[in-house]
Design a protein around this nucleic acid. Structure first.
Length: 272
DNA sequence: AAGGTGAGCAACCGCAGCGTA
DNA sequence: ATACGCTGCGGTTGCTCACCT
């Protein structure tokens, strides 16, 4: 029983790659392109498993790999994205040009994760203030501040980013969007937040593909409109137990069949 | 100088998702 | 509907090197 191994282990090299192997792999991919990893080793004349070749290429040999230490800005972005996405390193890496999921994972495990542990604020741990008897504090910026705001959608790809600027508003409804921050004009995270902006932490919302659909496509709007809807929600949601970005009815007004799993969780994925 | 220890990072492993026959 | 193959992802392992005693 069990899966057959991805390749026969017999006669294959393991461990660190030699310069020669690197050269062979690089030349082969330059000529034939990526993909067909299973057959690649045989065709390229490498005594390696296809998975190993893929990993070596993606994590080390790819020409667009950025070398050097993770910058402060990158670290800040990693922390924020991790709050939002959890341990989905490939998604996080997708927002950091030239960085690989493996690199970010390693960096997190050896640097950032340690910092959180030292601070007694492990990111995976829910805050202690989840006592149900206590009134639930509404996080003014669930995407930025809460350590429990990991979005558990089945997101596969980040497609759009909307960023708001200005001093951190505790009343989300007052957040203003930059005119240029439209879905057609996505923010370039290759130039992340500057040092001097740390007092003006931007709020950002991402639009993820979920099961092949774009969340904002369900809503037939861009995410900036969430803020407009928030105003409506603030005015009309008093009858509801929870307060979110958007009222459930409002969302249900759109084609929402694939959103049902999210509604089932009481929209917690979005507003908490 | 030699051995021990810990950090950092590259590579491996197993599983899940997806496409296809 | 199902089995199978391929690919991608995240967790884990183990090697290397720097630092300490």
């Amino acid at each position: 029983m069990g899966r057959s191994p991805c390749c026969s282990k017999e006669g294959l090299n393991r461990g660190a790659w030699t310069a020669m192997e690197d050269r062979v792999l690089t030349e082969y991919i330059k000529t034939h392109g990526e993909g067909k990893w299973r057959n690649l080793p045989k065709r390229a004349g490498l005594k390696r498993c296809g998975k190993s070749c893929r990993l070596r290429w993606l994590n080390y040999l790819r020409p667009d790999i950025k070398r050097g230490n993770i910058t402060r800005d990158e670290e800040e972005l990693i922390i924020r994205l991790h709050k939002l996405l959890g341990n989905r390193w490939s998604l996080i890496a997708g927002r950091l040009p030239g960085r690989t999921d493996n690199e970010i994972k390693n960096y997190w495990n050896t640097n950032i994760g340690k910092k959180f542990q030292v601070a007694g604020d492990h990111p995976k741990r829910r805050p202690s203030s989840t006592d149900p008897s206590q009134p639930r504090e509404i996080n003014p910026n669930p995407f930025m501040e809460s350590s429990s705001s990991v979005v558990r959608t089945k997101a596969t790809r980040c497609t759009k980013v909307v960023v708001t600027t200005g001093p951190q508003e505790h009343d989300q409804s007052h957040a203003k969007l930059q005119p240029s921050s439209t879905p057609d004009d996505p923010v370039d995270f290759s130039n992340p937040i500057s040092e001097e902006d740390t007092n003006y932490l931007p709020n950002f919302i991402m639009d993820f593909e979920t099961d092949g659909n774009i969340l904002s496509d369900f809503l037939d709007m861009d995410f900036s409109q969430l803020f407009c809807l928030q105003n409506e929600a603030d005015n009309s949601i008093n009858t509801s137990d929870h307060k979110g970005f958007v009222s459930e009815d409002k969302l249900r007004g759109s084609d929402s069949q694939s959103l049902d799993p999210y509604f089932e969780s009481g929209l917690e994925w979005l507003c908490d």
